[in-house]
Design a protein around this nucleic acid. Structure first.
Length: 326
DNA sequence: CATCAGGGCCCTG
DNA sequence: CAGGGCCCTGAT
């Protein structure tokens, strides 16, 4: 509850050149995601907190290039003494990985530039990366608060967690929350967590924190695994089922061809977007996306999905409003 | 007022 | 492999 704010004054920057095409705003702003207090975005600039082991850094990313001539300036803000070349490089590499800056999306965007369904999404978001700014542990917090509830409550749970366990930092005139270290949850009681209105998820948080605290999850190892192994190992983690494992493999590990399951909410949206119907059987949806977009089918859905929410930001989409409750 | 579903997953039989 | 239970909250 103590709202101690850490100021980060010093910074070090580096230019990074992603492979073209690269869409800055599509990469750093995901309108379909629910609001999180850990970052701040405005067109062309993105600020967020980043926890590396027991230290917290501020990250600012500026767009200094264009879609076909990409360049970003990544600045790392730190407390005196908490940076050296090794840590700086680690942070830059990690940020590059999480936002998938080093991948080449040109084959995909060229191939489907004029596709009847995703063509307009590609033309608008060409070079948008599949990005997840979180560590694996942090991502599991997000997916857990999403489970079996409405978005409004997910937001409430997330804010309660940040207020109780998070740290606040300010840098470059922006103030954001940072995630807590695993140990804090591991040392808290389930009752303490339940007081944050997370319900039965308290148990999930405890079990997951324990698995991470005991070093039973090796992210380096997971990143090297093939899809089958990865999936099998992720499913071993408590609280991860078919829906979460798919989000993980896609957003965190950048596998673009692993759609085996369509959650009910997305089923409604894809029924409309792909068939212009209210509810189409998930098997039929799966068959169609694999048939049309092959090894890119999940990426294709992402372009379609995010573009829909970009449009929603500027104009009202009646059928979508009905599917999104406040 | 009561009931229920909501962007799943675990556990049991 | 199907189905009940789980915390809570807004909608009905």
């Amino acid at each position: 509850m103590t709202s101690k704010i850490t100021h980060l004054h010093q910074s070090k920057s580096i230019e990074v050149k992603p492979k073209p095409p690269f869409n800055f705003d599509g990469t750093f702003c995901k309108p379909s995601n629910f609001p999180m207090p850990d970052h701040y975005y405005e067109p062309g600039t993105y600020w967020r907190s980043l926890r590396v082991n027991s230290n917290i850094y501020g990250i600012k990313i500026n767009n200094t290039g264009r879609i076909d001539k990409p360049e970003v300036l990544i600045s790392v803000y730190y407390k005196p003494g908490l940076i050296n070349d090794e840590v700086f490089n680690l942070i830059i590499n990690e940020v590059s990985f999480r936002f998938d800056l080093n991948s080449d999306y040109s084959e995909f965007t060229n191939k489907f530039h004029d596709d009847e369904i995703i063509g307009s999404s590609i033309r608008k978001l060409k070079g948008m990366r599949v990005a997840s700014p979180y560590s694996l542990y942090e991502f599991l917090i997000v997916t857990t608060v999403l489970q079996n509830t409405v978005v409004r409550r997910s937001v409430q749970m997330m804010n309660n967690l940040f207020n109780k366990f998070g740290a606040q930092i300010t840098f470059d005139d922006k103030q954001v929350f940072a995630f807590w270290p695993v140990e804090i949850i591991n040392e808290s009681s389930e009752e303490e967590l339940r007081n944050l209105k997370v319900g039965y998820r308290a148990k999930t948080f405890k079990r997951q924190a324990q698995e991470f605290a005991e070093d039973r999850i090796d992210i380096k190892y997971l990143r090297k695994m093939n899809k089958t192994e990865l999936r099998k190992n992720l499913l071993k983690i408590y609280g991860i089922g078919p829906a979460t494992v798919q989000y993980l493999m896609f957003e965190q590990f950048h596998h673009f061809d692993i759609c085996e399951y369509i959650p009910p909410w997305e089923q409604k949206i894809y029924s409309k977007l792909l068939f212009n119907q209210t509810l189409v059987d998930t098997d039929k949806i799966l068959k169609k996306i694999k048939n049309k977009w092959g090894k890119w089918h999940m990426l294709a859905l992402h372009y379609l999905f995010e573009n829909l929410f970009w449009i929603k930001n500027t104009k009202k989409i009646e059928w979508l409003e009905a599917l999104i409750e406040l």
